[in-house]
Structure formats: C-alpha cells, structure tokens
Design a protein around this nucleic acid. Structure first.
Lengths: 207, 207
DNA sequence: ATAACATTGTTATTAAAATAACAGTAATTT
DNA sequence: AAATTACTGTTATTTTAATAACAATGTTAT
C-alpha cells in the first residue's frame, strides 16, 4: 500500500480503527461492512470502498476480521517509529488538545508545548513540558518533531508558522483565524471556529 | 439571493468578510480579486467565482467596493435577528470556544453554556451563564437557541445530541470523537481532533 | 486613434468524493 | 440440485469543488 489515499478515506480509516478497537472489546472477532457503517453513521458502500482502496479483503458471509483490519489500518496510517507533535499556544484550546491525547495510545505523541507567557513556561501540562516560544526552532529540530498544532491568537500565527517552517516542520494544523501560507512540502490543515459556526448558521437558516 | 450556496463557498464568504473588515480599517475603499485572494492564500479565480455566485459585481479596473461586499455577504450569511448558540460542556475546549466569541461582533451569540459539574453550574464564563445540563431542553426552547456546540467527552455526546434534537435544535457542531446521527433537518458538522491529526500525520509520512 | 493592458464575469474542463449499480459467490433454503 | 439469500468487491455514474480558458471592456500608453 504505497499509493496515496484520498483525503477523506484517510479520515475515515482513522475513525474505523477507533470504532473497531472499541467493538473488539465486546469480544466479537468479525464485523460486516454495514455494521461498521452503522457505527459511523455512513453507508456500507462507503465502508467497502474504503476497505477496497487499502487492499484488504474480507470473507463472504463473515465480513471482516476485526483485528486484521485494525492492523492493516495501522500499517497504513502509522509510522513504525511514531511521530512527534508540538502544540504552540497553551490557552484553553491548546490544553484541550493536550487533554485529548493524554491516555490515548496512538503513534502520535505530543512531546512539547510552547507559550510566551512566563507563568506557563517550564511547567508541565498533561504530562507535556511547556517551553518558551523562543526555543521553538531549537527543540523542534532536536527532538525531530514533524507535526505542529497552532493554537495561538491570530496576530501571532504568521510568525509562528514561519518559525515552524524554518525548523523543518512537515505538517501543521492551524486553529488560528488567520489563513496561513505554507510551502508545498508542508501539509496544512486549517480549522477556523468562527467560519465553521457561521457556515452551520447559514445552513440552519436555509433549511 | 435565495439559492443555497455550496458549502465551501459559504466558508470562504465568512473568511472574505473578516478579511475585508480588517482591510477596511486600512482606509482603502476598493479591492481587487487578487488582493482578496492573497489575504486568504487562495486563487483570484476562486474569489471571483464565489462573488459571482452571490450575484455581486465589481467594477472593471477598480475591483470591488469593500463596504458593499461586506454588506452583501452579511445579507447572505446573517439573519436579521441573529442566531443564538449554546455550548454544551465547559471543559477547556468549551471555554476556548466561548473565548473565540467574546468581543467579536457577529450575529451569532453564545447565550448559554451547559455542564454537569456542580462547581461550574451557575457561574459566568466569558460573560455567558452556565446552567446545569438538566436544564438543557428547557433553556434551549425558551431562549430560542438554534445552534449548539457539543464539547463534552465522547461517552456523553449521544445523550446530549438526543436532548438537543428533542429541544428543537437546528444545527450542531460536534467536537466529541463520537460520530453522531441527526435527523435530516438538523445540519451537522463534525470535527474530530484525533482523526484530523492522524490525517495530517498520514500526509506528512507520504510526502 | 490604435494598441496593449488589466481587470471582471462566465463557461468549460478537470479533479475529488460520494453514490449507485451490479457481478460474483459461499451459505442456506426449498 | 436449484433457487434464494446475504454478503463482498468493483466498475459506472453523479455530485461537488476547483481550476482553466477566455470573452468583454474600460484604461492607459503610444
């Protein structure tokens, strides 16, 4: 499985895996496409198509082997060594993100947090050390962190983004309301709270 | 402008407006499509196409009238009376969301927050009263809240969603990792932190 | 006055994602 | 043994989104 998968398929694979890990604890070993579909509230065709794309094949009348499927998805979306993540900006959102990860076993590990507030620097949040933002480039380089989450206020986002690129970051999730511009070798995902809520409001109004 | 616009166009309209409001304060009255494009790091064609879809037209060689464009976008995405929003779950994420809104002038107003923790109930967060989650249906009905943000842990998300539907909610933004199932008259937008980060990690790995 | 330019608005094309259609087949029923 | 059923896997179609192509036209330069 070397070919790059569609964006949306990758998202669903992550969700399939989580749903399957949970399903597994019920003791069942096999699952049908329509059962996976129900867990995610999507269609069975979509599930089968995604599974086709990753080259796994179930067995007729039995469905998919839960553990096998979990493993295959792991081979596709995880790296052997795992990947390190930094959170930049330890406001409520930054802490929320760190909270999401604490306890979860995943191949993504948040290994550093950054902030400019001296009261936050050198403290530990959800097990993660917070450094002064001046150390950003240095620590990202030294620790080999490849992914960053930007959760600073808009006015600082651009500067942070530049520094991250300088430090050799490979993927960025931007929560600030400021749209960023990244070189093409950096994968950028943006999420703008106000925009998303205004969109919801628009479709509420229209419906 | 009655026709329903494409999802992505609506998102960009929200961003155009914010960028324009900011641009306006520089004192300029007109703006070209490629200037808007630069602000958002997208293409000028995309901008012109979106503007075409909303039926506004600029003037050749002068571009668009900033204020007019702001107003037209407002007519499309806002309602006259504004829309009320509730935040369910006052953890770090819930507080982050409330923070995003405090001070912003928008036609969306967060008017209620809900939590089950008695220490949080009956306090005010960022100017918003926090009620016990038992009051959810009652308050949403009485206040005419049409939009809800779910920021509770996964295990509670489904119950909250059911209650919201019962209360007559029209749009939901779900931050919990639990995929929700909503009747078709409720607009649902999901955002799953782990999934999104795993996707970023996948494309980082591939690049 | 004519040509070149810079810009908008629109149609045409391509790309990505979702959905539908259906072929194949092992298990079960008749 | 034949027909039916309940699934998977794949191709075809449709829908949505993005990009490209280009016509139209006022402005500036020559």
């Amino acid at each position: 499985m070397n070919r790059k998968l569609p964006d949306k398929t990758v998202e669903r694979l992550s969700q399939y895996r989580r749903a399957l890990l949970n399903y597994k604890s019920s003791g069942k070993h096999h699952i049908f496409s329509h059962e996976i579909a129900n867990l995610l509230h999507i269609t069975a065709v979509q599930v089968r198509r995604d599974i086709m794309l990753i080259g796994y094949t179930g067995t007729l009348r039995q469905g998919y082997d839960v553990q096998d499927l979990i493993d295959i998805i792991g081979k596709i979306i995880d790296t052997k060594e795992g990947q390190k993540v930094a959170v930049v900006g330890i406001g409520n959102l930054g802490r929320a993100i760190m909270g999401y990860f604490s306890g979860k076993r995943t191949r993504l590990t948040i290994t550093a947090a950054f902030d400019s507030n001296p009261e936050k620097v050198n403290r530990i949040y959800a097990g993660i050390p917070c450094y002064h933002i001046e150390k950003l480039t240095e620590i990202i380089r030294n620790e080999g962190i490849s992914i960053a989450v930007i959760s600073v206020p808009g006015e600082f986002a651009e500067k942070v983004a530049q520094d991250l690129v300088m430090a050799g970051i490979k993927g960025v999730l931007n929560f600030s309301p400021k749209p960023l511009n990244m070189p093409s070798h950096v994968y950028l995902q943006e999420f703008d709270m106000l925009t998303i809520l205004e969109k919801v409001a628009y479709f509420v109004k229209k419906s």
